[in-house]
Each structure stands twice: as structure tokens, then as C-alpha cells.
Write a protein that binds this DNA or RNA. Structure first.
Length: 433
DNA sequence: TCTGGGGTCCTAGGACCC
DNA sequence: TCTGGGGTCCTAGGACCC
């Protein structure tokens, strides 16, 4: 906690819905709901007109429709949201070089790093109002709510107080007066599970939380969470505003309108997701060592399986091969509603760029989860594509058919390629055994 | 047909090494 | 024959955030 109110938190009001209303005048003044369009979708953002009907974020589309059937339901235009977000972040960076985006519609700004005459309450209040006006201007009419206080925690709490299109400045020294009457759920990190544990311990307000010893909170919530909450209950928060935070993982997942039971289809979907993960890794110059799949069963139980390579990869083919072998270990007979693939353990460099071709070739070797040690049919041509090793199943008219096999799931999928398809990377003689 | 998608952080147990 | 700690890495699951 600082002695000045120099941390600013900005939150764009009903951001996705507001962008839609800005771009489509016929939606202005009407309930607009972004998300919740698919069979199993949930609401991403509801405009304030829709919130009056009790529609809120994370509500199922089904329920949102029941509550507000005349709303405009939109699936979302993320390019527009990203572009608008970028404009806002530029405005924030004009104010201070130290800007920490939390999502497309939220950021912290360190006013202590800004070029201001002082950090008095009157000064930062004026800065906040000017900022809100500027955001309104550059976004073509979107409104933002701002909180300014002596820490990230208080700034964020403050920005919740006067939504939408408002601002709250917490004068230094008054933090605990503001916090004490509040419910514990205003603390970031206190969700339903933590709130319930605290409730059972008779703790509802931050004033009550403040009376609990640190040891007791750690016993109740674990080391990290307990210690963190003990501090926040005292308005102790010295977390700095950090401009550049590196990605820790990249993932793609999808929920399907009806449960999947066909393993071949699941493998195909994982393969496609893995390719997408690889593309995004390469686009950001990243590669990672741990491949994780996520499987949500029909009854919503969620499983994950992961495998760590000896060196990082950014190749969709490698990621997909591992993803499929991880899936092979799971029982999915009851049906699967969600499948996902992710890569973590990221290194922010690309191995080929650093070590050249020799290292790249070596990487292909080590990256295989296990050496191809299958018994191919006598005389078969063995090929590699992004699915891994397979053997030529048939050919003719410039097309080869390949059957892919893995040790875990024989027989594998059959796919056709044009003979000049670069996806068929190399031909190898069959192994001797 | 209740319950998205993209993330972060934490915990606990086991393997392994010194 | 029985019994150590500490540290690190990996895996699986869970809470939480927007």
C-alpha cells in the first residue's frame, strides 16, 4: 500500500455489448447479450438493458433467453473488441508508461510513473475524469468506470462502486473504513468455494476477516490463499503494476452441442485443435514442453492428462500426436462434452532460430513420445505427416492413402494425400524388426 | 440439454537425486 | 535391516478471474 492514491483501475462498461451497440445503432437502448448463442453457450456480456431482466455473465444462454427473450443474442465479434481494446490501452499508455492489461476491457495504470505535478487526491481525480472522457472519445462513445487508490486491490474494489460510467477515488488513510463493512466476496480471489468456507467459520465481512489470526486463515484456506487474504483484510497490498507479463500457456478447447462418443472423431478434433495451438505458438514466437489435454465428460467431471517433452515444440503435428495418445488412456464411453489441448512450460524463444538446422533435426528425434517401433507390413513405405508415422495403404492417380498407427490405438486413421502434399514430409524404409 | 473459453495460481503426492 | 531430509520436477485436480 502506498501513501498516495496512485494506482488506477479502469473497467470498460459491458464492453462487448457496448461495442455492438456502438456499431449497430438499432441495438442502442435495447437489451443486447453477447454469448449464449450455441446449444451449450453461456453469456459473456449483457448490456445494462439486459441486466435489468436479471441476465448476467456466465449465465446459460437457455436461462438468459427465458429471462429476456426479446434481447438481441450475438455470438461476438472479437476482432472488433480487440481493435477497440487496443485504442483504449493506447490512451492509457499515453497517460503512463506503466499499464497492466488484465483482459480486453480492464487494466491497471501506475500513476506514480506518469508525468503528473503531484499525486494529491484532487490531481488524480481530475486525471481520472479526463481519462474517462478521452476513452469515450477515442472509442466512439464507450463508457468506462475508474477506481483510484493506494493499491491494486483498493483500486479494483473502488472501480466496482460506481458502475457504469463512474469513478471512485479512495483517499489514502481511508482504505479500511471503506473495506470493513464490505462482504468478503468483494476480495479478488474469494469465489464461491472460499466464501462458503469463510461463511462456515462465521466470517462474512472484511471486518470479521480482520479479526481472524493468520495461522487460522492458513489452516482454513492453505498457505498462499490464507496468507494473501490475511493481508488483504488489512488493506496490505504491495503488488506492483507490471507492464509486460509473459504468457504461461496456450490452449484451445471446445464444447460440443451433443456429447461425442466416436473416438475417431475425438482424435480428429484434437488434431485440429493441436494445429491451432501450434499456429498460435509460432505466431507469438513461443514453444513449450508440456502438452495437456482436457476432457469434460457428459456428467461434467473434468479430466486432464499431460505429458512433458524433453525439449519444447511449436508443431501442431507433435502436439496432436501426444494429445491423441493421452486421450487413449481415458475412458470416454459415457460421452464427452468438451475437448481441449494446451501447451505450457513455455520458452519464449524458437529453438530453430537459436541453434539452426542441426538442432531442429535433433528436436524431431527427441520430441517423439516414443520411437516408432511398430511392425509395418512387409515392403511398406513408411511416411511421416503431422499425425506422425504411418504407412502407405494405397496409391493411384497422384494420391496416396496412408494408414496411421500408434502403439496405443491401432489401427489408426486412414487419410489421403496428393503425392506432392508437403504434409507428407519424408519417406523412410520400414524398420528392420 | 443447467454449467464457454482462455487464462493464472495453488496444492498434494510421487519420483528422483543428493 | 531400518530409516533421514531437502529440493526439484512432474502430474492431476481445483479455485478463481474476465
Amino acid at each position: 500500500m502506498r501513501s498516495t492514491a496512485s494506482v488506477l483501475h479502469l473497467d470498460l462498461d459491458a464492453f462487448f455489448a457496448a461495442v455492438e451497440q456502438r456499431d449497430k445503432p438499432s441495438l442502442r437502448g435495447k437489451p443486447v447479450i453477447v454469448g449464449g448463442t450455441g446449444g451449450r453457450g453461456v453469456v459473456s456480456t449483457a448490456s445494462y438493458e439486459a441486466r435489468r431482466y436479471g441476465v448476467g455473465s456466465a449465465m446459460s444462454g437457455r436461462e438468459a433467453r427465458a429471462r429476456c427473450p426479446h434481447a438481441a443474442f450475438l455470438s461476438g465479434r472479437f476482432h472488433a473488441y480487440r481493435a477497440t481494446s487496443k485504442l483504449v490501452m493506447e490512451v492509457l499508455r499515453d497517460l503512463s508508461p506503466l499499464v497492466e492489461p488484465l483482459s480486453l476491457d480492464e487494466a491497471f495504470v501506475d500513476l506514480a510513473a506518469a508525468d503528473l505535478p503531484d499525486l494529491e487526491v484532487a490531481t488524480v481525480t481530475e486525471v481520472g475524469e479526463r481519462l474517462r472522457a478521452r476513452v469515450h472519445e477515442v472509442t466512439g462513445g464507450l463508457t468506462a468506470t475508474v477506481g483510484i487508490a493506494s493499491s491494486k486491490f483498493l483500486a479494483k474494489v473502488a472501480s466496482e462502486l460506481d458502475k457504469p460510467d463512474g469513478m471512485t477515488v479512495v483517499p489514502p488513510g481511508t482504505e479500511l473504513d471503506l473495506l470493513r463493512p464490505m462482504n468478503v466476496h468483494v476480495i479478488p480471489g474469494v469465489g464461491p468455494a472460499t466464501a462458503e468456507r469463510l461463511r462456515r467459520a462465521g466470517i462474512h465481512t472484511i471486518a470479521e476477516l480482520e479479526l481472524v489470526t493468520e495461522d487460522e486463515l492458513v489452516r482454513l484456506l492453505g498457505q498462499a490463499h490464507g496468507h494473501g487474504l490475511w493481508q488483504l483484510a488489512r488493506a496490505q497490498d504491495s503488488r506492483p503494476v507490471v507492464a509486460e507479463r509473459e504468457a504461461k500457456s496456450v490452449s484451445v478447447e471446445g464444447t460440443y452441442d451433443s456429447d461425442l462418443t466416436d473416438r475417431r472423431l475425438m482424435e480428429g478434433l484434437l488434431t485440429r485443435q493441436a494445429r491451432e495451438v501450434g499456429t498460435r505458438l509460432r505466431k507469438n514466437g513461443l514453444s513449450g514442453r508440456t502438452v495437456t489435454i482436457k476432457v469434460r465428460l457428459h456428467d461434467f467431471t473434468t479430466l486432464s492428462r499431460s505429458s512433458t517433452l524433453s525439449s519444447p515444440t511449436d508443431e501442431g503435428g507433435t502436439i496432436g500426436r501426444i494429445a491423441r495418445s493421452l486421450l487413449a488412456d481415458l475412458d470416454t464411453t459415457g460421452g464427452v462434452r468438451l475437448l481441449g489441448v494446451g501447451v505450457s512450460g513455455l520458452a519464449d524463444w524458437v529453438q530453430e532460430d537459436l541453434f539452426g538446422e542441426t538442432a531442429a533435426e535433433e528436436e524431431v528425434e527427441v520430441v517423439l513420445p516414443e520411437p516408432p517401433r511398430r511392425t509395418w507390413p512387409p515392403g511398406a513405405d513408411v511416411v511421416h505427416d503431422e499425425l506422425g508415422p504411418g504407412w502407405v495403404w494405397g496409391s493411384g492417380a497422384g494420391v496416396v492413402t496412408v494408414r496411421f498407427e500408434t502403439a496405443d490405438t491401432p489401427p489408426g486413421p486412414v487419410r489421403s494425400f496428393r503425392v506432392d502434399d508437403p504434409a507428407l514430409r519424408r519417406f523412410e524404409p520400414p524398420p528392420e524388426d
